[in-house]
Computed example of a mutant assay.
Amino acid sequence: MSQRVLQLSDCHLPAQPGTLYHGRDADQTLTQLVQQLGQMPRFDLTLLTGDLVHHAGPDAYQRLLEQVAPLRSPCHWLPGNHDDTAAMAAVDAGRMPGGKRLDLGRWTILLLNSTSNPDGRGSGDLATEELNWLQARLQQLQDRFVLLALHHNPTATGTPWQDATRLGNPDALEALVAAAPQVRGLICGHLHQAHALECAGRPLWSAPSTVVQFVAGSDRLEVETQPQLSTPGCRWYELQDDGRIDAHLVRLSTIEESMTHG
């Protein structure tokens, strides 16, 4: 039986509800998206993949958990470059990655913290301890299918300003993935765009933001305005028993696309 995993990313909830983020109400768009997702069959797991609040503290993280609660699925999060891990832990330390392993059927999802060694521009690394943990887990999980989740994209997208703020040490991650055939895919946030890429020969999907999207290919940050690309959205994945991943894109405009990888 396949496992249904929902990915919500880059929610950017403000300290005070109603404060606009690039002209949009992040609380409102997240609430609307959750309402739409609530009309779908229940997900087995919800992953929140970073940049969950924007210059805010524990109250905003608590508000986020309350907003996704109607989905009625176990929820776990990992931090992005805009997140405060101390504030996240203060709300619920049990959701923190810290080497988090989640088992679903024949699958294991490993949550990674890519916010080590921040450069002040948005980039971050996988710490040595995180890489060592990942290597040890992959050695233990040779008989299971594995999905990796992190905030920063390890692969360049061709958008210059974003490529400068991707994962700071992608080679280290790629080496571990290349040596682990049980890793069937990776997911990330950070980009405020929906991409289907590759990392070490495995599919890598980025989820759109639940609030605003950024223009792909631009030399500087620009907010997307094209209707089909600009609407809040998310991804969800069907993890199949044979190791395939069916990736789906959902937006508030109800546009949905899917891509399957073996």
Rank of each mutant, 00 (worst) to 15 (best):
A127D: 15
T165A: 13
H76N: 12
Q142E: 10
V215A: 11
Q32D: 11
L8C: 12
Q140Y: 01
D44A: 14
H192P: 11
H195E: 15
D219A: 11
A247E: 08
N132R: 13
G38S: 13
P227K: 09
P58W: 06
E129C: 01
A164F: 01
T31V: 05
L131P: 05
A69N: 13
P79D: 11
L104Q: 14
G120H: 08
L176V: 00
G262H: 10
S123Q: 10
H192Y: 13
P118T: 09
L176Y: 00
L176T: 00
I187E: 07
Q213D: 14
V183M: 06
N117W: 09
N132E: 14
G122A: 05
M1K: 11
C11S: 15
P160V: 05
Q32T: 04
A216H: 15
S123I: 04
V183I: 12
E129P: 00
A172V: 02
L8Q: 10
T210N: 06
T46Q: 10
H151G: 13
E238T: 09
Q140F: 01
H82N: 14
M40W: 12
E238W: 11
P14E: 03
A247L: 09
T225D: 08
S218P: 09
Q28S: 14
S123C: 08
V34D: 02
L6Q: 06
G98W: 00
L48V: 11
N113W: 03
L65W: 06
D125Q: 10
G217F: 01
I245K: 08
H82Q: 11
G158Y: 11
